[in-house]
């Protein structure tokens, strides 16, 4: 089994209205050191081992469904979990 963590965020070039609102709020709270806030999504997938390379499958899922490549970037971490 694999434990896969997928992070999806809006691309740098795309304005993130939620991130901007949160940054403003942090600013008024006194955290002026915060330069930028980007809000994204975090997903955990548990994937069974198959013949296909897990990384290839994860990339495919990210590009087809988990993220929208027009406006979003994704990254992932894959851990092999030991089944006891």
């Amino acid at each position: 089994m694999y434990k896969v963590k997928v992070y999806v965020t809006l691309r740098e070039s795309v304005l993130d209205p939620q991130g901007t609102a949160v940054k403003k709020s942090l600013d008024t709270m006194g955290y002026q050191a915060v330069e930028d806030v980007r809000i994204g999504k975090y997903m955990e997938l548990t994937i069974e081992k198959t013949d296909r390379d897990v990384e290839e499958v994860v990339k495919e899922m990210c590009e087809r469904l988990l993220s929208n490549p027009v406006i979003e970037d994704y990254r992932y971490e894959i851990e092999e979990s030991v089944v006891l």
């Binding site: 809006l10 795309v14 304005l15 209205p17 939620q18 609102a21 929208n68 027009v70 406006i71």
Partner: peptide, 11 residues
């Protein structure tokens, strides 16, 4: 159709 939707600017 090309492009994508974002949250409204005003949220």
């Amino acid at each position: 159709l090309p492009g994508a939707m974002r949250r409204n600017e005003s949220l």
